[in-house]
């Protein structure tokens, strides 16, 4: 099935690194991940609240987390991370599906949610994607997750498939 994309590009996005202070006063650095420090990811996903999982990700055991990270922290994917002084608190990723299309997902640790980190992360991720010439981005989100859907709409995603359990949205970069 062919996915539908908006006819017009969503505009231009600020690319990483983006330094900023979140709403709770944490100094957060948003930057692109290009390799190294795999353990910081493991640590973040170990601390991830299982009730924030969606459609089976992130996985919950060390083995599964590693296997999953091996699949998305690749050279052909785009990964942007949010870190405080001592730890990783957010991660956003664009993973290719073998065509021109990239699937997007974003993860922010519970205690750092609703502080503006998600918006910065997704902006930086789309900025990084734009720099790499990526044009088609899609995502799926659980129907009930209005906070996430609002964020995706804000940056320009439009509903592309609303027939299934999961709500699909797409964006043209």
């Amino acid at each position: 099935m062919t996915r539908v994309y908006p006819s017009e590009p969503a505009g231009s996005f600020e690319s990483p690194p983006i330094p900023f202070e979140d709403a709770a006063g944490h100094t957060v650095r948003i930057h692109e991940y290009t390799g190294g420090d795999f353990d910081a990811f493991l640590e973040m996903y170990r601390a991830f609240d299982p009730t924030d999982r969606a459609q089976g990700i992130p996985p919950t055991t060390d083995d599964r987390i590693q296997e999953w990270l091996d699949r998305i922290l690749t050279d052909d994917a785009v990964n942007v991370i949010a870190s405080t002084e001592d730890r990783l608190v957010g991660h956003a990723t664009l993973v290719p599906d073998g065509t021109e299309e990239y699937e997007l997902a974003i993860f922010v640790l519970g205690e750092f949610q609703e502080l503006g980190i998600g918006t910065k992360l997704i902006t930086a991720l789309l900025g990084a994607g734009q720099e790499q010439g990526i044009e088609q981005v899609w995502l799926s989100v659980e129907r009930w997750n209005t906070a996430a859907r609002t964020l995706y709409r804000k940056v320009g995603f439009e509903p592309s498939n609303t027939q299934n359990f999961e709500f699909e949205m797409s964006l043209r970069l």
């Binding site: 996985p59 799926s140 359990f165 999961e166």
Partner: peptide, 15 residues
């Protein structure tokens, strides 16, 4: 099946 990112996607039949 799984999406490129590893998300579980139900088929129409399964739904």
């Amino acid at each position: 099946r799984r999406s490129p990112l590893g998300k579980i996607q139900l088929t129409d039949v399964a739904e």
